[in-house]
């Protein structure tokens, strides 16, 4: 029970338990499909939450990294005969390097400027993916080969459920470890006051860059998984709206709450599926959630809920 009392370890166990039990509750492949999409988004959100929630830096371009990962997995095997698994790794490394190169100048920026710089970066990636038709198939997208591991072709929602579940669990575990590391502590200091952190000898730029790169790699891996899972990708996966959705998931779940982010991803991915009758209002609802969360629920869904329960008991 000691482990459970550690909120982080406890949370990880709960997540593992949910992943283990969920398959018995899901009636058919469609629900597996939705849950897999939740898992893929959650993986990005766990990474993005490190950046937004812990380091206090916004990114409106993370879908760009997601898209690059997805296209690495699509383009490299199809056009250059690189095995899919190697493409996934190469994509992640490439995106990591790109994040270093881009991150260096733009992470010096603050607030609005950082938001717009990341947004511009995301749009440039989107433009590249939709304009380079010979490579990427253009706006109509392209098919993705199946992921093969040791000669075994991965397909079917059940296989993918466990892959994505495993990836999410590993990603969450890595993120939690990072938060407890010296980098994590430095980040929290940075979130509170960048200048104070700097005065206390924290190498602000290096820590910010580390988290930016880690979150970009998370997004790239999630993109690769999503590409192989769905078998088809379009540049929309790198689009502005997807970036916004990712940020909203972080915000809804609670900035700085890793598990909250996963809940946010689950709600925002699953909700439109169950509200298809009201699809016209989907965007209005998305916008409203963003505003209301930031005004009244600044801690996000999960932390607010937790606080309320606490308050009632004491």
């Amino acid at each position: 029970m000691a482990a459970l009392r550690q909120p982080r370890t406890g949370g990880l166990l709960v997540l593992a338990a949910i992943i283990a039990v969920l398959p018995f509750l899901l009636p058919n492949a469609y629900y597996f499909d939705v849950v897999i999409l939740v898992g893929i988004n959650a993986l990005v959100v766990v990474g993005l939450n490190l950046l937004i929630g812990y380091a206090g830096q916004i990114s409106l371009g993370h879908a760009g990294f997601f898209g690059l990962g997805a296209y690495a997995s699509a383009v490299l095997p199809a056009r250059f005969d690189i095995p899919p698994l190697a493409a996934l790794v190469l994509g992640a490394i490439g995106v990591g390097l790109l994040a270093v190169v881009i991150g260096r100048p733009i992470l010096r920026l603050k607030g609005h400027y950082l938001a717009v710089a990341t947004l511009g970066m995301g749009l440039l990636i989107f433009m590249l993916l939709s304009n380079e038709q010979d490579l990427t198939g253009g706006p109509d997208g392209m098919a993705v080969q199946r992921l093969t591991i040791l000669g075994y072709k991965l397909h079917g929602v059940h296989t993918w459920y466990w892959i994505v579940g495993g990836a999410l669990l590993t990603g969450t575990w890595l993120a939690l470890n990072l938060i407890d590391s010296p980098t994590g502590r430095a980040l929290r200091a940075l979130h509170d006051s960048e200048i104070a952190a700097q005065v206390n000898g924290v190498d602000v730029v290096r820590h910010k860059l580390t988290v930016f790169v880690i979150s970009a790699v998370f997004a790239s891996l999630a993109g690769s998984l999503s590409a192989h899972y769905s078998g088809f990708i379009t540049p929309n996966s790198a689009g502005f709206l997807h970036s916004i959705e990712l940020v909203t998931m972080v915000v809804l779940g609670g900035m700085g709450s890793t598990f909250g982010g996963i809940v946010g991803a689950a709600v925002l991915t699953a909700l439109p599926q169950f509200l298809t009758v009201f699809h016209e209002y989907e965007h209005a609802a998305l916008g409203l959630i963003m505003m209301v969360c930031m005004i009244y629920l600044r801690d996000g869904l999960l932390p607010s809920l937790r606080q309320r329960l606490h308050w009632r008991r004491s």
Binding site: G56, T248, M255, L286, G287, M291
Partner: peptide
């Protein structure tokens, strides 16, 4: 960051 998200939310809304 919160203000950015609010005005983007307003734009989407």
């Amino acid at each position: 960051v919160a203000l950015i998200i609010i005005t983007i939310g307003a734009s989407v809304f």
